[in-house]
Design a protein around this nucleic acid. Structure first.
Lengths: 252, 252
DNA sequence: AAGTGGTCTAGACCACCCG
DNA sequence: GGGTGGTCTAGACCACTTC
């Protein structure tokens, strides 16, 4: 056999560690190609599956990305910054600018695949909106794309009775967006709650967001309340975690 | 786009889908054992590695957890709720209760492995605190454990000159914690910014938080400012995403 | 056409957990 | 002790990308 000393760790881990260190040390920069499976087999005298496993480790850590037929490449991290509180200040959406245009920071975030339907409220949405399960709600789904890469899926739910006949039920909600329309309907949202969690994406999410393996999603569920404390919208968002930093600024 | 045959999918994906559906349908409940590698080989007539790959898919999705020598089990999700804004209201830390006790919600969150040192400010911290890189800062590291399971790592940085001689440089900061001491020093934090991102854990993070594969971490970086807008603390937190939901409530 | 990663087989030995 | 997952080998064919 080979030398005994270094057997404390699995081979694939040692190979992965070596590559990770090289990346951290700057020997490979974002976008660079790493040694492929064949290179690792030759360099380390190891079987195919073992080299593969080593690359799999880095891939599932999200620091590396494989492209079929091309190679394995170092990933970059260049996120957007999403201002959780300022974005919802009245001054932002009262002035005809889209809520979302605040996001962009000079890159262009475009909306894509808008779909507006009416359907029965799912259980968890019904509970938050304070309606019966299955009661009709207006469902607005959109996807947002940045420089050709989808970064955000958003689905909002509003009581169907509340928005009937308004442009909220249309694809284009007009200047100021949904919240300006709600205000005109006498249900101005003034209080918000955002709940955030993170997990690995489902297959469907990974496909819609074109996520590479090893990239989690962040989930934001925002509930909008009127001044009477009535919930008028639930907005469920799914964010590519490699594309976003969330920011909340507030006073003690 | 007719889906003829549907055999375009790899075997391991079909097996993974089948198991996932069964879990979603409630055939396997949290804590239950799934069919193992040998079962899948027999049931589907595939090789070891293929059955393994199928289970690997579910594992990296975080919905399943393998225990060496025992089997593969369905994971549960029972998170804590962390109130991002109310937790920092003066009423919370002015009254002698720890900032963190607000988290617990009747389960017990205990602090563990406190370490307080003085060292040179890392670059990104120095930039935020507005000091020179390498200037001495007080570094407070803690780990928080819930029911025996570590859920949160926190490291905060404060200018060494500011906190010298106060109990902030001790392991026990006394009633009201760091922020109450800062207030006594004339640097009461009144404004906060929290930045949130998510990614897969490093090997070290996975070990310290005892994370099972397929679990991302959430990173919160909080900066605390005085009323003059001077940054007095940077707190970097690493959260087990399977243990936390973050909540921010605010007004338009 | 050559090279790459993606899938798959059929064996093997090990460390670990449980009854 | 028997079963489980963890690691590893040595082959194979395929789809895809790049030149």
């Amino acid at each position: 056999m080979s030398t005994e000393g270094a057997k404390r760790q699995p081979k694939y881990q040692r190979i992965a560690d070596e590559l990770r260190d090289a990346i951290q040390a700057g020997q490979y920069r974002p976008g660079d190609r790493l040694p492929g499976e064949n290179d690792l087999m030759a360099d380390h005298g190891v079987a195919r599956m073992t080299a593969r496993q080593a690359l799999g480790v880095l891939q599932s850590e999200g620091i590396v990305e494989s492209r079929k037929g091309a190679g394995v490449f170092v990933r970059a991290f260049r996120p957007l910054r999403r201002q959780g509180i300022q974005r919802l200040a009245r001054s932002q959406w009262g002035e005809g600018r889209s809520v979302w245009s605040v996001d962009t920071e000079d890159r262009t975030l475009v909306v894509d695949r808008v779909r507006v339907t009416e359907q029965g409220a799912p259980e968890h949405v019904a509970r938050v909106l304070g309606v019966e399960e299955g009661e009709p709600v207006c469902v607005r789904s959109r996807r947002f794309v940045l420089d050709g890469k989808p970064v955000l899926l958003a689905t909002s739910y509003l009581p169907a009775g509340l928005v009937a006949g308004s442009s909220i039920a249309q694809e284009d909600t007009g200047p100021g967006g949904t919240y300006a329309r709600l205000a005109e309907l006498g249900s101005e949202p003034v209080h918000f709650r955002e709940e955030i969690r993170s997990r690995m994406p489902t297959a469907g999410e990974a496909e819609q967001l074109k996520l590479s393996t090893g990239t989690p999603v962040m989930l934001i569920c925002r509930t909008a309340f009127t001044d009477e404390g009535r919930a008028v919208e639930v907005n469920e968002m799914t964010l590519d975690s490699a594309s976003y930093i969330l920011e909340y600024a507030f006073d003690a």
